[in-house]
Amino acid sequence: MKLYSSVLSPYARKVRAAIHALGLQDRVEVINVNISASPAEVVNANPLCKIPTLLCDDATAMYDSRVIVEYLGIVAGSDMLVPASGMARCHVLRTQALGDGIADAAILYRGLLAAGVAPDAALAARQMAAVERGLATLGRMARESALGAATRPDAGALSVGCALGFLDARFAELGWTGQYPALADWYARLDRVACMRLSAA
């Protein structure tokens, strides 16, 4: 299998972390691409030309990080990242959506500012407000031990961890670790887990 990826993408990092968590690193070749250049190999596999995109052994393409993580679990014969059914599955998928949503809003905010939109313009401010509400929700979840065991992360924890890593890299001025100490402690434990360390680059 081939994973088209980028070091800076929180979604691609989530998939790389999933690959290591599931023990599939010897079966997946990670290929970093400049997605802004619309590389032909990605366009041919994914009409949206987005990363991450996974090209399976049978030449089927999987895209969107959530779909790829689910597919990798099937390949590995494991539901450790995404439970097979029930409320446990719903909780993991909801946390994954929250982590991805924080990353979505942060990336859109940066894009708007790069396009010349003022930070206090309605659309930009709405994205930053989503990031801040998301962090507040994660802070509460961390205090209530609702983020799962950081030392045995599921797909929700990986999504949140990769979003927080992206904020650290691109939004250091937020200072979220000082505002949400329980979340910062949880993230520090998660960041030491092998799959997160190995997916950082």
Rank of each mutant, 00 (worst) to 15 (best):
A146P: 02
V92R: 00
I19Y: 05
Y109N: 07
A149Y: 00
A115I: 00
A122M: 11
A129S: 14
V30N: 04
N44F: 07
T53S: 15
A194R: 14
T137S: 04
G148K: 09
I68Y: 10
K2V: 14
S9V: 09
Y11W: 14
P47K: 03
R140P: 00
A200N: 10
S36P: 02
A150V: 00
G77P: 02
T95F: 06
L123K: 06
A121F: 05
R94A: 14
P39W: 03
K2T: 15
G148N: 05
V28C: 13
P119V: 05
E144W: 00
V42G: 15
A121S: 09
R94W: 06
A149H: 00
V92E: 03
D154T: 05
A184E: 08
E29W: 03
I35W: 06
C90E: 13
A97H: 02
Q96V: 02
V7D: 11
A149P: 01
A105Q: 05
C90F: 08
R133D: 13
L81K: 07
N34F: 05
A121D: 14
M62Y: 03
A155N: 04
A45E: 09
V131Q: 10
L190R: 00
S199I: 12
L98G: 06
A21E: 15
L48Q: 12
L81R: 06
P39V: 03
A155E: 00
M62W: 04
D120T: 12
A163V: 02
A155F: 02
V92W: 00
R13Y: 12
V30E: 05
L112M: 14
V82T: 14
A103Q: 10
A45W: 08
G73I: 02
A125P: 01
D26I: 09
S38Y: 04
P10M: 09
L112V: 08
L164T: 03
Y109E: 11
L81V: 11
Y187S: 02
V67Q: 12
A122W: 07
Y71Q: 08
V160D: 00
V28M: 07
A105N: 08
G101W: 02
A194Q: 10
R89P: 08
Q127A: 09
L72T: 11
W186I: 09
A59H: 11
Q179S: 12
